[in-house]
């Protein structure tokens, strides 16, 4: 479903700022891929380039979704194709309630796809059901989006959006950072319950601990803008034990 070929990415308007230095990655339908790597390796950049973040520029390579290039698409257009990014640091938006915002998101998607908009009544039902499933405090979602939310609450709110929007390719950008074990379990339960033959996940993480709860099909190690190793779930356990040391040495030697 997702193909990344020789992807090079820099920061917009900054010379010599290449962060991704030739990524090749292929994610099939229904697969869960974990991207692991040390700080500064380019993990978050990869997640955001996939979503079309405004301040990165792709200097070389290609990204295709179901065979079609998405490089020229805006983030909202990518979302309409079924992509979703759970943010590491979700924005706080005063005065905007999650309910209101998610309805707008679903409406835009329906409109772009020429589908019928969900009625307020049906949406309310869906929303309440998902609020229960994610275990987010119902009074919280009446407040401003993410404003005054704790780190854990923000991540639960990302999972709520994931559940409501039902994407076909969900990217989780260090969704586990700053979470206690309970919250971690909720994220994992969300992913596991949504796991289906038609839906793929890319789970970006620094630590292996989230992968105790989500079993990935494939694990990639990203170091210094390149994927330096790819393997099964056992690769994550190896990182847990030995850290990224051996990759860092290799990477410096080849640099």
């Amino acid at each position: 479903m997702l193909e990344i070929k020789n992807l090079h990415t820099s920061v917009l308007d900054i010379d010599d700022s290449e962060i991704l230095k030739g990524i090749d990655l292929s994610v099939g339908k229904g697969e869960i891929h974990a991207i692991m790597g040390p700080n500064g390796s380019g993990k978050s950049t990869l997640a955001n380039v996939l979503m079309g973040r405004f301040d990165y520029v792709v200097t070389e390579g290609e990204i295709t979704l179901d065979g079609e290039s998405i490089l020229d698409l805006r983030p909202d257009q990518r979302a309409h194709l079924g992509m979703f990014l759970a943010f590491q640091y979700p924005a706080e938006i005063p005065g905007v309630r999650p309910w209101q915002f998610l309805k707008a998101a679903l409406d835009s998607k329906a409109e772009a796809r020429g589908e019928e908009k969900m009625t307020v009544r049906n949406f309310s039902k869906l929303f309440d059901e998902k609020v229960g499933a994610v275990g987010i405090n119902p009074t919280l979602v009446k407040r401003s989006l993410n404003e005054g939310f704790s780190g854990g609450e923000k991540k639960r709110n990302e999972m709520l959006q994931l559940e409501v929007l039902q994407p076909t390719l969900a990217i989780l950008d260090e969704t586990d950072s700053g979470l206690d074990v309970d919250a971690l379990r909720i994220v994992a339960e969300g992913v596991n319950s949504m796991r289906s033959p038609g839906r793929s996940f890319i789970v970006v993480t620094h630590y292996q601990r989230l992968l105790n709860y989500i079993t990935p099909d494939v694990v990639h190690i990203l170091v210094n803008g390149k994927i330096v190793n790819t393997g099964g779930p056992e690769l994550a356990l190896e990182v847990e034990k030995d850290g990224y040391k051996k990759y860092l040495v290799t990477s410096e030697a080849t640099a």
Partner: peptide, 17 residues
């Protein structure tokens, strides 16, 4: 960008903000 990533186009996202 956060709103856009959820499928809301830029004009609508600005209006929401």
């Amino acid at each position: 960008y956060y709103l856009e990533s959820r499928g809301v186009d830029q004009e609508a996202a600005k209006a929401i903000l």
